[in-house]
């Protein structure tokens, strides 16, 4: 009986670890504007390979080609659909295969992640990634500087 219990504990251990790791995974890895370097700007040209129009933030995956012909896969973040719609975006603003030019703030951590400042669509339309048209002077909250 005791042997079975010990064996059971050993069997349960990986199950518990797996269960805890599943439970503790946040559904919402939503983060603030402060994750991006507001002092830097990058311009990328590439092909849209994914377009996610949903909360918490819309995401664009782009295969961007640099001047030397190297292709890098970027994840570009915007805002939620509500804010984006008020900036003129729709769920049909992008489709897979679109050739776009996009200006981004890169993530402080690097890793080919950026926040969209503006984007030029294949038809030449420019869409802004952030900002309130009714209050263009409004700035995002500043990152704490301890």
């Amino acid at each position: 009986m005791r042997r079975w219990v010990v064996k059971g504990k050993f069997l349960m251990a990986p199950v518990l670890v797996l269960a805890i790791s599943i439970v503790s995974l946040p559904l919402w890895a939503h983060h603030g504007f402060a994750a991006y370097d507001t002092e830097k700007k990058l311009t990328l040209k590439g092909t849209v390979t994914q377009w996610l129009w949903s909360n918490p933030h819309c995401l664009v995956q782009v295969d961007a080609t640099d001047d030397s012909g190297q292709v890098a896969r970027w994840i570009l973040e915007t805002e939620n659909p509500s804010s984006m719609a008020r900036n003129g975006w729709t769920k049909d603003s992008l489709k897979i295969g679109d050739q776009i030019t996009v200006t981004v703030m890169p993530a402080k951590r690097g890793g080919s992640v950026g926040r969209i400042i503006d984007m030029v669509l294949p038809n030449g339309q420019r869409l802004m990634g952030r900002g309130n048209p009714s209050n263009p002077g409004a700035k995002p909250e500043e990152s704490p500087k301890p």
Binding site: A35, I75, A107, V113
Partner: peptide
């Protein structure tokens, strides 16, 4: 516009973004 905390939408977001950047 509705802004709902939808577990399935957040799962999609996390799949693409995950821990790539911190808050």
């Amino acid at each position: 516009r509705e802004m709902i905390c939808s577990p399935s939408e957040y799962e999609l977001y996390n799949k693409m973004m995950g821990d790539r950047i911190s808050g």
